[in-house]
Design a protein around this nucleic acid. Structure first.
Lengths: 207, 207
DNA sequence: CCACATTCTTGCAGTCACTGCACTTTTGCG
DNA sequence: CGCAAAAGTGCAGTGACTGCAAGAATGTGG
């Protein structure tokens, strides 16, 4: 067995098929009528699922539109980050990006989502809000790295510094993902975009 | 008449008094029970106002908690920014901060809000979401400044650069406002915090 | 001080997102 | 096949929010 494909049971295959069917229906409706003019009931009728089940799957009306939350990264990646010594913002963004790619969506869904995001920026704000939930946990990683790297730095200063590292990374992330999505969409190139963006930020904040 | 106090009519005075009464009630309830366990009806009962009127005033349940949206800055400030030549991120943040201070709230309300924000970070995410609405307009200002400053820069590059300037500013803003709120809350010191934060960002992204 | 226009508040009825609970169906497994 | 666990669904309810139209408060010109 090359990669992790644990021969999904019927149960999981059904779940996956359903998820995709609902996502496609939801995205198609949202693209046609606009997010605000689509109701959960419409999505459910179009995808032949009960509203109750819809919420079991996606939690919120927008859940099927914005896709699953990025998963928490592997322990190995986390360790690599915490003990890394490269440029901290780049390393952090790579870590985030990896979580982003861990959940591989259906190609068609991916394309529709891309189109919808361009049309309705409010969804991006939603993404940010959801990310904010993970922010706490991620900030903790940054603090661990700072402590590991500068054992002499006072705690409060490290905390502030961690906050700012997070700000820059999370702030630049939408820009990078937009560029990346619009231009290639190829996972291998993410790193390039990250480096380019950070270089630009460096120039921007330089006197 | 020293400052602009255009002798409010009875109508406006009533509105102001009401607004403050409702805000206080809402904040007190949210501080006591937590935002999620407070209903609009509770707020209305506590502040003796009809739910319909509540929504006329604040639009959303959280409206009374997070306060009014920062107003669009004066034309004069905008021009100053567009033709400014200082460090662009600092200038932008000052512009945003000014909009923030233009709507002066009641002292007591301000203090309660400060406390609530510390207790419920989700409200900060809400702020960000609301700000996102103004993002488009603000990005346009940044583009104007870039065009003014670098007439030779290609449009797409300027657009990307504007996005990144926005990212850094909006990303760092919550951090700065947190520091400022926690430590002094004095308008005059905002500038200091902004400079300090940018200096730190510079260090962070430097190789 | 009094009509009259304007503006604001309010009640009502309705829509929609979302949830807990209990019931049925589906699936995995011995 | 038969049974237990898991998943889907219907139902009833809560709570945010909206449009509408009636009623109250306010500002204004006489």
């Amino acid at each position: 067995m090359p990669t992790a494909t644990p021969v999904l049971g019927l149960r999981e295959r059904n779940r996956l098929r359903r998820t995709r069917r609902v996502e496609r229906a939801a995205l198609a409706l949202a693209l046609e009528h606009g997010v605000d003019d689509v109701t959960v009931d419409m999505i459910c009728e179009a995808s032949d699922i009960s509203p109750r089940t819809y919420f079991n799957y996606f939690g919120t009306k927008e859940g099927a539109l914005i896709g699953p939350a990025p998963s928490t990264p592997d322990e190995a990646f986390v360790e690599e980050f915490v003990h890394g010594r490269g440029p901290i913002v780049e390393d952090l963004m790579l870590l985030i990006a990896r979580g982003f790619f861990a959940t591989e969506p259906d190609r068609e869904v991916f394309a529709m989502r891309r189109e919808l995001y361009a049309k309705e920026p409010s969804l991006q704000a939603l993404q940010v809000t959801r990310m904010a939930g993970k922010r706490q946990a991620t900030a903790e990683l940054v603090r661990r790295r700072l402590a590991d790297q500068h054992p002499d730095m006072p705690a409060t200063e490290a905390s502030d510094e961690a906050q700012l590292v997070m700000s820059v990374a999370f702030g630049a992330f939408p820009v990078i993902s937009r560029l990346w999505i619009e231009q290639s969409g190829d996972e291998a190139e993410v790193e390039t975009y990250i480096h380019a963006a950070i270089a630009r930020i460096r120039r921007i904040v330089s006197p």
